[in-house]
């Protein structure tokens, strides 16, 4: 199987990296958050034809990140999902459900208790 490249970048460079990928013709595949102790690891995956690459952010629990939904329109679904399930704060979402995308009884179940 092909190796998978995951590049860790800093929070400030997210938008510029994402715009670069958009210009190269990549499409958004998925966004995945993982709770690692008191931090979140957020992985954005992109694909161009059969090529696949990921960029990754490590952010502290209370940090805010920028939404990439202005660059990749489908991102709003993944970002609302992260917001609802993990409680990650996301800025400038194109369509913000305010925590009601998943209608859950127990809010942010994946957040570190």
């Amino acid at each position: 199987m092909t190796t998978q490249s995951i590049t860790t970048i800093s929070n400030e460079n997210l938008i510029s990296e994402v715009i670069k990928l958009k210009d190269e013709g990549y499409r958004l595949v998925q966004i995945c958050a993982t709770t690692v102790n008191s931090e979140y690891e957020i992985t954005y995956s992109f694909a161009l034809d059969y090529e696949f690459l990921c960029i990754r952010l490590m952010i502290p629990e209370e940090a805010e990140i920028m939404s990439i939904s202005q660059v990749f329109a489908p991102a709003f679904l993944y970002e609302n999902e992260m917001k609802d399930l993990f409680g990650i704060k996301i800025n400038a979402l194109s369509l913000d459900y305010q925590g009601n995308f998943y209608r859950l009884e127990q809010k942010t179940p994946y957040k570190n208790q």
């Binding site: 459900y97 009601n100 995308f101 998943y102 209608r103 859950l104 179940p109 994946y110």
Partner: peptide
């Protein structure tokens, strides 16, 4: 759309 009617949370 809004979803969550069949959400189980099986990833957890």
């Amino acid at each position: 759309p809004s979803i969550g009617f069949v959400h189980r949370g099986l990833e957890k």
